[in-house]
């Protein structure tokens, strides 16, 4: 029962990721794509945590934390580039 609920949650999250991907591909301007990238990162962090729960390995959560750090830096770098070049 509980596993089924988590399966449904994971499926919805992955569907959300696919929808976000549409905006990432279509997005007319660069900021649109970065916003989509930001949302995709958050969804990916959630899915990685779900995999950690299903596989029963706490160590996977470290990957999620590092991924969050890197994507935050990535967004900041792109924003800085947009404002005054690197």
């Amino acid at each position: 029962m509980g596993d089924l609920l988590f399966l449904i949650a994971g499926s919805i999250a992955i569907l959300a990721g696919l929808l976000g991907l549409i905006r990432f591909v279509v997005g007319p301007t660069l900021p649109d794509r970065v916003v989509a990238f930001d949302v995709l990162t958050i969804i990916t962090i959630s899915v990685i945590s779900l995999i950690a729960h299903v596989a029963g390995r706490i160590i996977y959560l470290d990957a999620a934390i590092v991924y969050g750090l890197l994507s935050f830096l990535g967004v900041i770098v792109v924003a800085r580039y947009l404002e005054r070049g690197l």
């Binding site: 509980g2 609920l5 988590f6 949650a9 919805i12 569907l15 959300a16 990721g17 949302v39 779900l50």
Partner: peptide, 27 residues
């Protein structure tokens, strides 16, 4: 396990629905 597992699953589904709403809003 057991009841906690089911409650956790339900809360996760609620969260996933908000993630889906964010993606729909994005589009």
């Amino acid at each position: 396990m057991g009841i906690l597992h089911i409650i956790g699953g339900a809360v996760s589904i609620l969260g996933a629905l908000f993630l889906l709403l964010a993606s729909i809003g994005l589009i």
